[in-house]
Design a protein around this nucleic acid. Structure first.
Lengths: 193, 193
DNA sequence: CCTACCGATCGGTAGG
DNA sequence: CCTACCGATCGGTAGG
């Protein structure tokens, strides 16, 4: 039994917040998870809000990193979009607690922190919008699409994935990424466009 | 100032739950909204959980009703899908509090109630799956689509709408329904299928 | 629907 | 990281 680090506590808090929500979690709950008293957490961290900020910041960083990688490695709009989709799925499934807390508990941040996270979210969304606009300009994406709305649709699908995807089910993560990209690119309907 | 009804209290509770979450709402908060004491709510309602159940049940009923209408009035799979989409948007925007609470606070229901709501959700999802399968059988929807996954994608987009749509913005609800249906049907990419 | 409470739990602190 | 607390707030009740 070695001593806990600040990172241990943030990870553990993320798990609780993701499952029970920020307001559904007490400092004593967090202590129980860690095998210490709730009050002992204050030796590592300033307070409950600080824990929420730390978890949400981690989530934001994972998404931002994923977007940078997709932009760097993508060749062409559709390839970059495909990488953005696969990267988002990886973040959501590899960092479920942070991603879920990032997606659901932001309203409970203090004003200043909430605003800065919403800005980060907008910047991430803008990457999707930019890639779709690029596709429209280059001819690979239909000009009838509204880039902003399309980005929101794609992100809505991506953000919901952790609520239903079962890692131990028959659908692999890669199959999901491919199926979802095909849906987004091609749509459901048959016949010529 | 006439006396409050049970329905008034459920509506008010829905607004609080939708904004601050179940665990972020106290009985005293609810009382403040209603202009009475928190303890006075117990004259109308058994407890906080009962309020959550009532709000969530209302949400479930709105969605179920919408699905029945779409199935009844739709002519063909694609028309029914279009009606399902427009109906879902109407529920989410006309009954924001109930819809949001239904979508977000179900994990905080007691076991039995949660299970029955999850069953209702599955039944609603199955309507979407059924319509997509019908479209595949009839040839209007491409056979390469996985009906279950496609239904989840469509519902993910629909369920996220209340988090970004601004009723007083430039996009009307009808435009949104049309744009979203086009996205779902046609996809983003240009070129033959 | 209010008065007057109840025991339990909350986030957090002083001092070690 | 624990001991020993603090005042505030929680969901809820008895009696009117």
């Amino acid at each position: 039994m070695t001593r806990l680090t600040r990172d241990d506590i943030i990870s553990s808090a993320g798990r609780r917040f993701a499952t029970y929500g920020y307001h559904g979690t007490s400092m004593r709950d967090l202590g129980d998870d860690l095998g210490i008293l709730g009050s002992s957490i204050y030796a590592h961290v300033g307070g409950k809000q600080e824990l929420l900020i730390a978890v949400v910041d981690r989530g934001a960083a994972f998404f931002a990193e994923s977007a940078q990688l997709a932009k760097r490695d993508g060749s062409g709009a559709l390839d970059t979009l495909q990488r953005l989709i696969a990267g988002h799925i990886d973040v959501v499934l590899d960092h479920r607690s942070e991603a879920r807390t990032y997606l659901a508990e932001v309203p409970f941040l203090d004003d200043a922190d909430r605003r800065s996270i919403l800005d980060a979210r907008d910047a991430y969304e803008d990457v999707f919008v930019g890639v779709i606009e690029e596709g429209i300009d280059g001819g690979s994406i239909g000009a009838h699409n509204d880039a902003r709305l399309s980005a929101i649709y794609v992100l809505s699908i991506l953000n919901a994935i952790d609520r239903w995807y079962d890692e131990s089910g028959r659908l692999t993560r890669e199959e999901l990424a491919t199926d979802m990209y095909t849906f987004v690119c091609t749509g459901l309907c048959r016949g010529p466009r």
